[in-house]
Structures are given as structure tokens and as C-alpha cells.
Write a protein that binds this DNA or RNA. Structure first.
Lengths: 220, 220
DNA sequence: TCTCTTGAAAATGGATCCATCTTCTGAGAA
DNA sequence: TTCTCAGAAGATGGATCCATTTTCAAGAGA
């Protein structure tokens, strides 16, 4: 066969929509019409419906009965609590992952950070940053934990992007310092320091993000 | 209309399957065949597929491409980590909920505990216990947080039931003592004590549950 | 007797057509 | 001008039929 991957239509549709939501092409609040997606991607409405359910499970959109799917837009308190969830869950994922992290994954993490330090484009930065962190959790091998963490990243992705477009690159050096301290702790297999730097990283991000009320709808 | 609720077929199918999984009629490891469910519940396969996706989003089953849906069975480490996730997330849900808990909800929580102290049947106990805890989080009004906590309860429900069938009712008084201390802290609107008793409650449950390796598959 | 192969049965994935619900638009009256 | 209500258009939910994949059992060969 010349085709390398048969891949189901619903998975293909889900992949396209996932990318569009994560990179902001489909903004929060937008309604997603099944027929429009089906026509655009050359499939029938059925795999589109399946794809919407998948993305719903991934925290990227909400499905309301008889009213279709839409990307939710969150208020400031909601985003803040999602970040507090990250502060509690990701250290657990990291500590469970650390003992099983092999050298190849560690090398990939280090390489990702090198790319992060050289990239300018915000979308590329966000994608690499996400891949960097999820890679540090990849060895925990607890599906529920990894899926939950991914959902939190998915739901807050838009606000991270909006923040970076607003704040510009002047705080990038802080991210890099935190990432490199985290990598150092990982290389030393030190769960205490790894958790310390990770929590600090997420906490700082939350505070800087929350400090911009203009990112969120209907703030009194 | 005589019908009080029109309710979509997919939601109805999902409700039946959800109840069957939670009460153990469909055990972990079991494959769920779409056609069997469709015939049994008097619907076509399409709403069944939708229902399976919904339950997948709720953490009750996993869907593998071209291989259908099944209720996952977890090993001991997986259940332990799920409980550690609960220990970190539920205190956050409680603290975010506590300031918004109204008197009616508090009264319902107290009433649920009174029922818990009088019930004998394990399935009824588990349902009431679940309702009790989720009620304490119900005022946090963060959909993602409540859904995540519900998923953790869903995924571990089977092992809680198996544990109770094994351990019998002799530790029920501990549950009641912990619940009543938690209620007292809620009535005093004391987030510190409330978090303290809740974490203790979950930690003790985890330890007692994990102490029974015979509850889990393939433990060396 | 064990293993590999092959083919048939069964289950899932997808497409099209129809029913039902939502929502938007516009006309009419206060 | 504004509110209300009715009707039409559009979108979602569901049923049936077909295609593809998986799975399992039977048989041939070593």
C-alpha cells in the first residue's frame, strides 16, 4: 500500500478541528456547525459528530443537546481555578513520571527547550512549550492523569495565546530560566526540586495571566 | 403533554449504561457491543455510539478505533494515583465551593449523612456517599473542576464497591466520624478544617483500599 | 499435537435520507 | 417604536443500508 496510515475519518476530522481550536482559528464562543465542517473536510456529518464528541472529551468544546457544539469562553475565575488545578495535578504527574523517564525522552526534552529559546512565533512557542511539559509527564503511564492534564492545557490554550500576544517576549527569559532549572532537577532525578520549580513556573504564569482582566469576557 | 421529559435517545441510553457500569452490572474488562445495547434498549446503533462517546468523556469506558468500547480495569498503581489525584483536587473544589454553599444545600448534605448512617446495602451506601461528597463541591460552579472530580469517582467506583464487599461494615463508623467532622467544619465555614478532614478521609480510604491486592488484576 | 493459514461471521465505521427542534425573520398590534 | 407571535429556514438527532475491519474457528501442513 502506498498509504502509510488508513486512519478513520472521524479521527482525521478531529485532528483538523483540534488544531484549529488550539491555534485560535476557531475562537472561544464560536459555534461549530456540523454541515459546514463536513463539507469543508469532505466527509459526511456522521464522522463530524463523532469528532465533536471526541473533542468534547478532550475539553476543547462543549456539546449542548439540540444546540450543537461550541468552544466555551471562560471568565477570569474559571481560568484561575484551572491553573490552580494544574498546580496541584502536574507535580503529581511529574513525580510519578520521573522514575520512569528514560534518556531518550530526557534528551528530547532538552532539545525542545533549545528550540523554545530560539523560536519567535507565538504559535510555535505555545506548541513547543506544551510538548515540553507533556513530555516530562509522558513516563507516568497513567492514562487518566495524562488525559486530565492535557484537558487543562486544552481549555486554557486560548488565554495563554492571548496573553502572549499582549505581553510580548520580554518575559521569555523567565520561562527559559524556569525550564532549565526544571531540566536540571530532572537530570539529577530530584523529585523535590523538580516539583518546586514546576509549581513555581505554573504559579507565576497564573499570576501574570490573571493580572490582565481585558483577556476575559464580562468583567464587572 | 403527558410526558414530563422528551429526552434524547442518546441521553437515555447513556443514563442506562452509566447506571449499569456504576452499580457493577457491567464489570471492568467487559466489552460493550453496540448492537446488543441497541436491541436491548430499543434504539438504533447510532444513539448508542453517541452514548458511548459521552460515557468515554465521563471516564466510564474507553473507546478503541475499530475495536469498540470496554470498561477499563485498572491495576493497583493506577487506582492509587487516581486517589492521589482526588486528594489534591477535591480540597480545591471544596474550598472554592464553601463560600457559595447555601443553607438549602448544607441541609441536604446533613440529611444525606443521616441516610448514610442508616443504610445497610452497599450499592445504596456508595450512591449516597458519592452524592454527599459531590454536593459539597456543587457550589464551586467550575464545570471543568466538577467534571474532573466526577470522572475520578466514576473510574474508581468499581474498586470501592469491591472493597466494601470484602471489608464489610465494621469500618463504617470511621466514615461517619469523618463525614460529621467535615459537616461541622462546613457549618462553621472553616476552609482549613474542612480541607483537613477531607484530605484525611480520602487518604485513609486510599490506604485501606490499596491494602487489598486481591482487588486488582495481575499483581505479581 | 501444535502452529500457521485462510475464510466466514460478526462488529465497528460511514453515507444518505427523514424527523424534530431551534432560531431567525417579518408582519401585525399596542 | 417596540413587543409579540407565527411561519419558514436551518441545524441537530435518529434510522437504515453498505463498506471495512476485526475476530474466531476450522482445516491443512509440519
Amino acid at each position: 500500500m502506498s498509504q502509510t496510515a488508513p486512519e478513520a475519518a472521524s479521527a482525521r476530522v478531529a485532528a483538523v478541528l483540534r488544531a484549529e481550536i488550539l491555534d485560535g482559528s476557531i475562537a472561544p464562543g464560536a459555534r461549530i456547525r456540523q454541515e459546514e465542517v463536513a463539507e469543508r473536510l469532505g466527509a459526511s456529518r456522521l464522522p463530524v459528530r463523532e469528532a465533536l464528541r471526541m473533542l468534547n472529551a478532550e475539553g476543547l468544546l462543549v456539546v449542548e443537546p439540540n444546540r450543537g457544539a461550541r468552544v466555551p469562553d471562560l471568565d477570569r475565575r474559571e481560568v484561575e481555578v484551572l491553573y490552580r488545578m494544574r498546580e496541584r495535578l502536574e507535580p503529581l504527574a511529574l513525580v510519578e513520571s520521573l522514575p520512569h523517564l528514560d534518556d531518550a525522552t530526557l534528551a528530547r526534552i532538552i532539545d525542545l527547550q533549545k528550540q523554545i529559546e530560539q523560536i519567535d512565533d507565538i504559535r510555535d512557542f505555545l506548541a513547543l512549550d506544551r510538548e515540553f511539559h507533556l513530555a516530562t509527564y509522558s513516563a507516568c503511564h497513567i492514562d487518566h492523569l495524562q488525559a486530565t492534564v492535557a484537558r487543562l492545557w486544552n481549555a486554557t490554550q486560548h488565554y495563554r495565546r492571548a496573553f502572549m500576544e499582549l505581553a510580548g517576549p520580554q518575559r521569555r527569559w523567565v520561562v527559559n530560566a524556569e525550564h532549565n532549572l526544571l531540566i536540571d532537577a530532572l537530570q539529577r532525578r530530584d523529585p523535590v526540586d523538580a516539583e518546586r520549580y514546576l509549581v513555581g513556573h505554573i504559579r507565576r504564569t497564573r499570576r501574570e495571566l490573571i493580572a490582565h482582566p481585558e483577556l476575559f469576557p464580562d468583567n464587572e
